[in-house]
């Protein structure tokens, strides 16, 4: 029996109406979703589909207007519970500049454990470990604003690792990065999940990132409109395109070639092609 880490039950979130009388905006409608321990879930959706708002309910930054959020058995219904939940599930945001608080890389990574009241020597150990995991140990004494976007995001990830949370929610962590930065960050995320067993919820609109997940959740209009393995989701090209999404080029190619199975990564595709084409002799 798989254990649930995060459980959303009929969650609705409505942004409060502003003073000028503009009506409140409901970004998430009646969403029920379970995230299991050790799982890697990708949440896909176009800009404004409600995926970021949903992510913020998952670690109790936003309290749902209706419905309940339960994290590791704790129901998010008060400020104190929220703090407890955030010790279990950390979060990394889209803009790398707006989540780094310290002027030195290692001080920033230490910020979370410091808030948790961890012993200084233990913080040091955690910070060093976290920085090594994301490959930023060599740059630990740098100023964050002199790092590249990908490096900043890895520092942010290290900041969550040092808190030793069970899960990490990443809200479009690669949206503002260049291809090199995207690759660095994606590799790091996959490592966290596969090697360290950390539960990952990756909010993204890059299809080639979602293919690495165990499960893909597609959102539009504030609700979950599809859910399944990457193979199941990415075999529905027309459906995804209708929701301003896409399928990876590899999948498009394999579909055009009439391959039965849904192939998602270039490596798998090359493998399949070599088996179809036989040796390179011809």
């Amino acid at each position: 029996m798989r254990e649930k880490l995060i459980e959303l039950k009929n969650v609705t979130y409505t942004y409060e109406a502003d003073e000028e009388g503009a009506p409140g905006y409901t970004a998430v409608r009646d969403v029920s979703l379970d995230i299991y321990k050790g799982e890697f879930v990708a949440v896909l959706g176009h800009n404004g589909s409600g995926k970021s708002t949903m992510a913020k309910t998952m670690n109790a930054i936003f309290e749902p207007t209706q419905g309940t959020v339960t994290v590791n058995g704790i129901v998010a219904d008060s400020e104190e519970k929220g703090n407890e939940i955030r010790r279990i599930v950390g979060m990394v945001f889209q803009n790398p500049d707006n989540q780094i608080v310290a002027t030195v890389v290692e001080d920033d990574v230490a910020f979370g454990p410091e808030n948790l009241g961890v012993e200084p020597s233990e913080i040091r150990r955690r910070v060093d470990d976290a920085l090594k995991t994301v490959g930023m140990y060599e740059l630990r004494e740098r100023e964050p604003h002199k790092l590249s976007g990908g490096q900043k995001q890895r520092v942010a990830i290290a900041g969550v690792l040092a808190m030793q949370t069970q899960g990490i929610i990443l809200d479009e962590p690669t949206a503002m990065l260049d291809p090199t930065g995207r690759e660095e960050v994606l590799k790091t995320i996959i490592r966290l999940n596969k090697e360290m067993g950390i539960t990952v919820v990756l909010i993204t609109h890059f299809m080639d990132e979602a293919v690495h997940a165990d499960r893909v959740v597609v959102m539009d209009g504030g609700t979950v409109i599809a859910e399944g393995t990457p193979q199941e989701i990415f075999s529905q090209e027309e459906f995804l395109k209708a929701h301003s999404l896409d399928i990876p080029q590899t999948a498009q190619l394999c579909r055009r070639l009439g391959f039965e199975e849904c192939i998602l990564t270039p490596d798998e595709c090359v493998e399949k092609l070599t088996s179809v084409l036989g040796g390179a002799a011809q």
Partner: peptide
């Protein structure tokens, strides 16, 4: 360090093979 389309990557790999 440039991002070439996945399809191009597949063809680069096929050529290498």
């Amino acid at each position: 360090g440039l991002n070439v389309p996945e399809i191009t990557r597949i063809f680069i790999r096929l050529r290498e093979l």
